[in-house]
Nucleic acid binder design. Structure first.
Length: 511
RNA sequence: GCUUCGAUAGUGUAGCUCGGUCAAGCAUGUGAGGCUCUCACCCUUGCGACGCGGGUUCGAAUCCCGCUCGAAGCACCA
């Protein structure tokens, strides 16, 4: 990341985080958090957490529109929790809530009206947009006297005006080139109940305005945010000029686009969680920080991936594989290996000469000191049974989506049950394969697959990132692992153990 | 449509301010080989890019102009 401009000697860099508490922070929000945090650490500055908890939608919108934005009370803690996990070092003694600052915004709004810099407009929003904003012609409200605007302001406060019936517009000028900026709204009415302060206030600031005030009042020296907030930067600068305030330095970065298979929206996640379609904020489909943690993604992998994106203004097609690649490098050396067969299929083996075969694979081939685990297969009447994964009996792609080196297992296939012995398939039935023992000698080039004893194993459920749960069986040794352990199921992927219940193991698929 | 911004390999990013050391670095991806009783990890090695056109200059990824393509914003959300 480039150096920050306008860093003055003897003046501390002060930056801020501005999450909206409508749900848990997700991977998209994380870029803003990580970049700000990283700069503050580099310049030994101060990072202020400002809950951007203005009211959001109107009461009416919240009641009628599923997509309306509003605050959910548990989001405050979810955000705090997410920041902690990410290692964001904000000033914990000085957390700011916008909802505590309504008096300030109202004071400035009134001051602007008194100065003639703002006015109360009671035009219909849609009509105003068509007849005034788009064409650049002021509405009749603007010509009224300051006294009548002050009177209207009081009527906004005292409830004479209902929601949607009046707003305060900043006099940015109807001749602005960008229609969006023409006499933009700075205060509006919402009777919605706020989780922290209830209905104490009904006239709320718009984002641009509240930040124009707060970035100055909180002494923010540098603002870093997504390019989608460009207009807000203009509005803030307009306000700073009106007040004669020093400008904070604003840096923008381009938007991230995510692949089709995940939609990032706190509002959408909130909906799906409330309808139980998602299993809480740890559901991988939310892509919340909590869900990433539950999957076994290391925060350092996420941080580094986001920092690698830099501060480019161009749009980015974000790939989750960047995180996975970094995460693999972090977790691999500590992720012990175990066997898991997804969608098990029974395999009967004959021609065995011993009554017991014991397999002792290394827990971690990259660290022999960790030792081995023991898996015993018992034979009766020269026969034994194991489970293998149905994935190995069908044509399939590798984890990364490439062609696999070996063809599907079918009649005549010779392969090795890993760390045990080599067999040849004799016959294939829908629910059962038969094979004969060939040798215990290991050949280098032969295919090896994981297996579990038919008589001794544990049921495992793996929650994939797309929300689908896969079922299978793993070796018994994983039963004694502590919850939260990240391990590698060989030839399958990394998983994190979420819970063990009724002798069944529940995991999140990491990647 | 209007406003603003951007364009380096498949995906990202460094370099562009102060033109030569850039026949373009790094990550990820991908091909080959090695290691390995995993298709993992690790190691070696190959592949792959300056959007197009013009100009300035001895010399342009870097400066200028035009074009093309793309993104964001255009709400009484944040």
């Amino acid at each position: 990341m480039p150096e920050l401009p306008n860093v003055k000697k003897g003046k501390q860099v002060v930056m801020r985080l501005a999450p909206y508490p409508s749900g848990a922070l997700h991977i998209g929000n994380a870029r803003m958090l990580v970049i700000n945090d990283e700069y503050v650490k580099r310049y030994k500055g101060k990072l202020i957490l400002v809950y951007d908890d203005t009211i959001g939608a109107t009461k009416q919108a919240i009641e009628t529109n599923l997509d309306a934005k509003y605050i959910i009370p548990e989001a405050y803690d979810l955000i705090r929790d997410g920041l902690e996990w990410l290692g964001v070092n904000y000033d914990k003694k000085n957390v700011v809530y916008k909802s505590d600052r309504l008096d300030i915004y109202q004071k400035y709004a009134k001051e602007f009206i008194q100065k003639g810099e703002a006015y109360v407009c009671d035009c219909d929003a849609a009509l105003y947009r068509e007849n005034h904003k788009k064409v650049g012609i002021p509405c009749s409200c603007k010509a009224l006297s300051i006294e009548s605007h002050l009177e209207r302001w009081n009527q906004m406060l005292d409830g004479t005006y209902a929601e949607q019936e009046a707003v305060v517009r900043l006099n940015t000028g109807m001749d602005q080139k960008d229609p969006a900026l023409r006499d933009h709204v700075i205060m509006r009415i919402s009777d919605a109940e706020h989780p922290r302060i209830g209905t104490k206030y009904r006239v709320w600031p718009i984002l641009d305005f509240s930040w124009g005030i707060d970035d100055h009042e909180l002494g923010i020296t540098h603002i870093i945010r997504g390019a989608d907030l460009q207009k807000e930067g203009f509005m803030e600068q307009f306000i700073w000029d009106l007040m004669g305030w020093e400008h904070s330095n604003i840096q923008l970065y381009g938007r991230m686009k995510f692949s089709k298979n995940f939609k990032l929206s706190k509002t959408l996640a909130r909906q799906k969680i409330s309808t139980k379609e998602y299993d809480g904020w740890e559901d991988p489909r939310t892509w919340s920080l909590q869900s990433l943690r539950a999957r076994g993604i290391q925060s350092e992998a996420l941080r580094q991936s986001l920092i690698d994106l830099g501060m480019s203004m161009s749009g980015i097609n974000f790939s989750e594989n960047w995180i996975y690649a970094k995460n693999t490098k972090i977790i691999d050396e500590n992720a012990n290996r175990y066997w898991f067969v997804e969608d098990p299929i029974k395999l009967d083996i004959s021609d065995l000469s011993k009554t017991e075969y014991t397999s002792t694979p290394l827990l971690n081939p990259n660290n022999e000191k960790l030792g081995t685990r023991n898996i015993t297969l018992n034979a009766f009447n020269n026969q034994a049974s194991v489970y293998i994964s149905r994935l190995d009996t069908v044509e399939q792609l590798s984890r990364k989506g490439n062609k696999v080196r070996f063809p599907k297992i079918s009649v005549g296939s010779q392969f090795r049950l890993k760390d045990l012995f080599t067999i040849e398939v004799q016959s294939v039935h829908p629910k059962k394969y038969n094979a004969v023992f060939l040798t215990e000698e290991a050949e280098k080039s032969i295919r090896k697959i994981q297996w579990v004893p038919h008589a001794s194993n544990i049921k495992v459920h793996v929650l994939k990132p797309d929300g689908i749960v896969m079922h299978g069986r793993a070796e018994n040794t994983i039963k004694s692992l502590p919850l939260g352990t990240i391990l590698q199921f060989e030839r399958y992927g990394y998983v994190k153990i979420q819970k063990i219940e009724k002798n069944e193991v529940y995991c999140y698929f990491t990647h």
